[in-house]
Design a protein around this nucleic acid. Sequence first.
DNA 1: TAGTTCTTTGT
DNA 2: CAAAGAACT
Length: 514
Amino acid sequence: MVKVAAVENAFVWFRNDLRVTHNPALLAASQYSATHGGRVYALLVTSPLEWRSIHNWGLPKASYYVRTVSVLRRELSKRGIEMLLHTPTAKNATEYYKALASEIVQLCKSQNCSAVYMNAEYDGVALERDAAVASALDTAGILHHTTHDQCVVPVGKVLTQSGTPYKVFSQFKKTWIRYIEEHGLDMIDSEPTEIEKSSTILPDIELDLGYDMHEYPNWDLNALHTTFPAGETEARKRLHEFLQKSVSGYHEDRNHFMEGGASKLSAPLAVGAISLTECLLAARIANKGALNSGSPGLLTWMSELCWRDFYRHVLFHFPHVGRGASFRPEFEHLSWRGWPPNIEPAAEEHFQAWCEGRTGYPIVDAAMRQLRREGWLCNRLRMVVAMFLTKDLRIHWRRGEQHFNQFLVDYDFSSNNGGWQWSASTGTDAQPYFRIFNPLLQSEKFDPSGDYIRRYVDELSKVSAPSIHDPFKRCKGFDQLKYPRPIVDHSKVKEQVLALFTAATTVTTKRPAD
DNA sequence: TAGTTCTTTGT
DNA sequence: CAAAGAACT
């Protein structure tokens, strides 16, 4: 007796995993459809509403995402996988999840898909969305399966000896390395065979993203397209060029604001155009298999990859972080300015000056202008400006997190949130509150010539080092420069914020045990 | 992935 | 007394 299995198709719901290589959900869907004699369809929810109003993505991130989707759609098409673009009908965020869930069920029925595969995501918004969809699929009797992706070591696998999650990076990293040494690093073979060199090349996806262009006055879109080409092939090319040419000096170059020592893989990593595992695997091979010794540049870069894993693990273990809360509640009520109840015009003026790069601190202003123009900053500058906003201006880190979201091409919830809470000293492995960056010292140390400042701050284009680092004090004709005076006095406000943190710490530690 | 100040060491 | 190191914030 021959049983004829019903033809059943499978969906891969792509989110922030826009690649065909090393994609667990794609592999699982391919296996399902092979077993059931069906096809794989790719599902992509194109929702400017979700991107803009729910995830709060800015234009740089949203447009990079759409460009990457266009490339992925072509790559899948060459492999005989059709991508369905679905735009939910919901008009506002409150109805969104419910509408999306029922529409995905409808899509499954219309495409004869009996299973949906997706890679796990851990921020609060994604958890809520995926729970709503999973519950609707359950009700409709459609299989769904969530695969581990995003992290090199699966969440939940890096724990202390007593089984609790790590709150400190350095210890996390030791255990993380041991896990990788014991379990190895492998690429899974998810790439479906290329079946046709399609003669009809699918066009780029054009979407009205609905952003207000007035919010992007200095925006250089062409530069962004050149600096951050979209898609998996470009990301892989970048990875191997970086490992061959630049990584040897990475541990030093990455700090020098003009050197361009960064890999610039943050954008493709944020949308999953390349997997973190592939990056680490390639780096480990370049380092002859070692994770603990060898090239200082490679070790530093691999450590940065570990930071990405660390912050994702933190989200998984401490979901309140994914819902926007401070990791350490004792600093939540530290009279942060620009946040209820401390809403005051003076704070808004300071915040605006920070956003637009007119704080009177040249290194801060250069960085904030680069961010607005190019959608990207090297990590040290992110720390310098974040520290300035949270410690010098004492403005709540959430305001800065949101501003970075609006402008960063590589926006990623966990890395961005982790970095902000690190700077604000409210996070896991936060910078001890008394370690406050001195913008002047950072400027002199990492931009000694002033070339970086001159590149972004036109008012100072004729000023040379060392005056350029502190023009208010060091330039005789300061007023003619038309450059703003420092909006705060660093050494003064530093003392104030130190006192506030000390008070908050004292209250918690001296609370009697009851 | 800090900065500042005080203390010790080396010439 | 400059430079390096330790201690503290």
